[in-house]
């Protein structure tokens, strides 16, 4: 999936809503939202692709205070399908109003937990019948997990104080593997050189990319060098 690079926007401002739109478009979703409370500043970050009239209604009526896709999902480690929330009274209340605005009630919320225990909530929805929705969700769930953490990390580091606190900590193994990538070795080669499985190489590289906030391995090499974590070869 194509992700918008949120790290290096030309004007220094990240286009979070544009990123959400991009996620929707590439995964076949109707709407996407993200919300979190910053662990240090207490600032609430919220972005959505929902239409303005729903945003206004939602805020005016304080629906965020009873929205189970926020309150309940924040306490789960796994994605929470909205179908699991249907029995709660708050669900009926919030979603009967959403229905009047022509918004779907089939969706899923991905909770992200950050290093400070803070929670980011990434929600997506699509107006599909139950079986169609489940099929789509199963297909894209891995993508959604990655997008959720990527977006959460981007939002959290958008405040300068967090950038320094969240300096990426790579393990020796992660640095070693990234150094071999910089030297032009393939993942299979690296596995052979270090006598570890290909899967181990992949898992460490994935972790490295996410820690360095890189969308591609090439980008991770660049960031690794610029941060002095590895040396150019």
């Amino acid at each position: 999936m194509e992700l918008i690079d949120l790290a290096d926007m030309p004007n220094g401002k990240s286009d979070f809503v544009g990123h959400l739109r991009n996620v929707c478009e590439s995964l076949g979703l109707e709407y996407a939202s993200y919300a979190s409370t910053h662990p240090l500043s207490g600032t609430v970050h919220a972005f959505t692709t929902y239409p303005d009239r729903w945003k206004n209604h939602y805020m005016e009526h304080g629906l965020h205070l009873q929205d189970p896709t926020l309150e309940k999902a924040a306490r789960s480690i796994a994605p929470v399908d909205w179908g699991r929330l249907e029995r709660s009274a708050n669900f009926q209340s919030v979603f009967s109003q959403a229905y009047d605005f022509g918004l779907p009630d089939t969706g899923v919320t991905i909770p992200v937990r950050g290093p400070f225990g803070e929670v980011g909530l990434f929600s997506v929805s699509a107006p599909l019948p139950t079986d169609g929705w489940q099929k789509l969700r199963t297909q894209i769930i891995g993508n959604l997990q990655s997008s959720a953490v990527y977006l959460h990390d981007a939002v959290m580091t958008s405040e300068t104080v967090m950038k320094s606190l969240r300096f990426p900590h790579l393990s020796s193994r992660e640095k070693e593997i990234l150094q071999w990538v910089a030297a032009g070795k393939s993942q299979q080669d690296i596995g052979d050189i270090l006598s570890i499985s290909l899967r181990t190489v992949e898992v460490h590289l994935r972790s490295t990319r996410e820690k360095l906030f890189a969308l591609t391995t090439a980008q991770a090499v660049g960031r690794g060098i610029s941060l002095g974590l590895i040396t150019p070869s």
Binding site: I77, Y150, V203, S207
Partner: peptide
């Protein structure tokens, strides 16, 4: 991605190294 045992109490196992962190790993 958040607080877990390998990042904290089981640091002996990782010899003090930072743990793997990934959206796709529990």
């Amino acid at each position: 991605t958040g607080p877990h045992m390998l990042s904290d109490v089981f640091s002996d196992i990782l010899c003090g190294e930072p743990p793997l962190r990934s959206a796709l790993m529990w």
